[in-house]
Simulated assay, not measured.
Amino acid sequence: MEIKPTESELEILQVIWKKGQCTVRDVHEELAKNKDAGYTTTLKLMQIMHEKGLVERDTAAKTHLYKALITREQAQQTALDKIISTVFKGSTSDLVIQALGHHRASKDEIDAIKSYLEKFRDSD
């Protein structure tokens, strides 16, 4: 079963990935720096994330600690797959052309892209 986090769940996961493990209060305080989110909303979202298998909850202490069960890379791959299939109708090249055409890549990023593409060329 593929787990697809929502945008709000991804915001929470970003905090958990950064901190390793944290309480609902930790997540809420971090989210409150950039958006108006209620504590109970954050709590409810994290409970749903636990039910979906996105996070695990350690209930040994009075204050529950949450830890991500999905890696940043897994979430990125899921989101990218969805974007490629829906927005770009399955065309990876259209995605890359759009990204490079509208966002300035540094020399190091361009070199890394070239190196990655060479690996594909060499494997043919």
Score class of each variant (00 low, 15 high):
K62D: 05
A75T: 13
E118P: 01
C22N: 11
T41S: 09
E51P: 00
L31Y: 00
H50I: 02
E109R: 12
D108P: 07
T41G: 15
I84E: 00
D111S: 08
E73C: 02
V87Y: 11
D36E: 05
L100R: 01
I97C: 06
Y116T: 10
V55C: 08
I97L: 14
K35R: 15
E118F: 09
V24F: 04
Y66I: 02
Y66M: 06
G20W: 03
L69D: 06
Y116L: 10
Q76K: 11
S106D: 13
D111C: 07
I97W: 11
L43P: 00
G101Q: 10
A32P: 00
K44W: 07
V24Y: 09
K89I: 07
K62S: 13
I97F: 10
K18E: 12
K33N: 14
A37F: 01
G38L: 04
E30G: 13
R104H: 05
S85G: 06
I110M: 15
V15Q: 05
A99Y: 14
I16L: 12
L45K: 07
R25T: 15
K67I: 02
D111A: 02
T63R: 08
T71E: 06
W17K: 12
S93V: 15
Y66T: 04
A105C: 14
V15W: 01
T23K: 09
L13I: 07
T40I: 04
Y116P: 02
K82N: 05
V15H: 03
M49V: 04
D108L: 14
K67Y: 05
Y39W: 11
L95Y: 15
L43R: 12
V24H: 05
T40G: 00
E73Y: 10
Q77H: 07
H64A: 13
A68M: 08
M49D: 03
I113R: 14
L69G: 03
D36H: 12
H103C: 15
K119C: 10
W17R: 10
K82A: 12
I12E: 09
K82T: 04
E29A: 13
L31R: 10
I48W: 02
E73D: 15
G90N: 04
K52A: 08
L100I: 08
E73T: 06
K44H: 11
S115I: 02
R121Q: 06
A68H: 11
T86G: 01
D81W: 00
L13F: 06
T71V: 11
K35W: 00
G38S: 13
Y39I: 05
V87G: 00
V87M: 03
Y39F: 05
Q47T: 09
E30M: 14
R72A: 11
L117Y: 07
M49Q: 05
K18C: 07
D26A: 08
D108V: 14
M49H: 07
K19R: 10
D111E: 02
I70A: 15
V87R: 13
H28G: 11
N34C: 05
H64I: 13
A37Y: 03
G38P: 03
T63N: 14
L95E: 04
E109A: 08
